[in-house]
Structures are given as C-alpha cells and as structure tokens.
C-alpha cells in the first residue's frame, strides 16, 4: 500500500502540494485526476523517491521512504515500474536493450533467459518483433508500449503511469487504456495513473483521487466522483471553463 501523509512541496514561492494526504489501495488502479500543472507528476515523483517532500511522510508498505538513504531507497524502487510521459527510452540502445536494461542491471539471469523475457514482455504490450529497432524509429504510441514493457520487465508490484495517453490519437489512447487494464489484471500490480482525461479515467479507474490546489479534495469510486457535489469536480467532469480562472 502507498500512503502520503501531510506531504508539502514548494518550488520557489509556489506551493504545489499542500499537506496532501492520500492512500492508494493495493492491487487496484487508482487515477490521480487534476488540471495541467496542478502537481500530479510531482506526486508520482514523490512516490518513487525522485523528489523529497519539504515536509510530510511517504509510506510504501509501511516504510517511510523519506528517511531512507540511497541504497535502501534503491531496494524499495526495485518493486516499482514507471512509465514516463515520453516513455524515456534510452536513445542509444535498441528497444530490446531498453526492455532488458532492468534485467541486466538487477538480475543474474543468463542472456538467453533475458532475451526470452524481453520478447515475452514486448508481446504482452503488443509489440512483437521490434526488439532490434531504435526508439527513434517508433511512433509515439509504440514508444509508450515499449516503455511499459521496460517498466514491467521485473514484474513490479507497483506500476506508475505518468500521463500515459497524453499526445496520442483517440484510437491509440483507447488501446493504451486497454493495455493498462489488461496489464493490471495479469500482474495484480498496484497501478497509479496520472491523467487529465475524463473518458479514459472512467474507463480504467477502480479509484479516482481528485487533485485541486495541492490537496486531494475527493477520493472514491468512479461512481462516487461522478455524483460528487463539489463544484470544481462537477465542472471538471462537464468540461466547463467559466467561473474558474485559466490558471497558470
């Protein structure tokens, strides 16, 4: 289970997270929904220890990761897989080498076995036979799939998705949504998805956490969020602009 308790983070004079509390249940898909620039990615980066909070605690399976040194943090991170916004594949390696990277780094598996796992993971994300290609030869959607294959290479217990469908066409977005749902079903992993897309969120989420002004203003099932009386949530779901300034 992932739990954030009173997490505060400021960049300069701008307070992005304001004593944020959030409990993410295990083995389910939780979508953190919020406006662009509202600090959704910042939450994700705190969960995996890429950022440390100014104050507050972050528990991964009851272990406070804000107090760990790098070696201990690395052990915790091995339970994670993360799909970055632009996939963050290494340009200098082939797709296959990218997917193999965590296996080469953290296991002592023989080359043949690694190759087998790479092919299996690439098949799982619907990209068979691209192992020899360079990331620059892939389309945006294919890169995301390859990034997901790399993220699940070590069979992580927690998978983080940073805006998985941003910048994709509707058909590819839908395919990635299906992929997230199927991956979660197969691996029983805890999935945390960052999104600002309503349709996609209602399709994949078991739980939705609504981020507004640095806090989670509502957490619940898609049904509960849909029926929420909070004016911001109502507006967000109905995609209405008036009454709320355009923001940063």
């Amino acid at each position: 289970m992932i739990r954030l308790a009173g997490v505060t983070k400021s960049f300069g004079s701008q307070r992005v997270l304001n004593a944020l509390d959030l409990e993410i249940p295990s083995e389910e898909i939780t979508v953190i929904l919020g406006r662009s620039g509202s600090g959704k990615s910042v939450i994700l980066k705190h969960i995996i220890g890429l950022m440390t909070p100014d104050s507050g605690k972050i528990y991964i399976n009851d272990k406070d990761i804000t107090r760990l040194n790098e070696r201990e943090l690395n052990e915790v991170r091995k339970q994670f897989g993360m799909l970055f916004q632009d996939a963050a594949l290494f340009d200098s390696m082939t797709v296959g080498e990218n997917v193999a990277f965590p296996l080469v780094e953290h296991t002592r598996l023989p080359k043949k076995e690694i190759q087998r796992i790479v092919e299996e993971k690439l098949r799982q994300v619907g990209l068979p036979g691209v192992a020899e290609k360079m990331p620059s030869e892939l389309s945006g959607g294919m890169r995301k799939r390859a990034g997901l294959a790399r993220a699940i290479a070590l069979d992580p217990k927690i998978i983080l998705f940073d805006e998985p469908i941003t910048g994709l066409d509707p058909i590819m977005s839908d395919a990635i949504d299906d992929l997230i749902v199927n991956t979660q079903r197969q691996t029983r992993a805890t999935c945390v998805v960052i999104s600002h897309d309503i349709a996609s969120t209602f399709k994949i989420a078991h739980n939705i956490a609504m981020l507004y002004e640095g806090q989670i203003i509502e957490f619940g099932s898609p049904e509960a969020i849909r029926n929420s009386s909070h004016p911001f949530i109502r507006q967000f779901i109905k995609r209405e602009a008036p009454g709320w300034n355009a923001g940063p």
């Binding site: 220890g49 970055f84 990277f101 953290h106």
Partner: peptide
C-alpha cells in the same frame, strides 16, 4: 526524463 528513469530503475 531518461536520467529520472535511471533513478527509477535503481
């Protein structure tokens, strides 16, 4: 974000 990805992969 490839440097973040390295951190994320320990």
């Amino acid at each position: 974000e490839q440097i973040d990805a390295l951190y994320a992969m320990s």
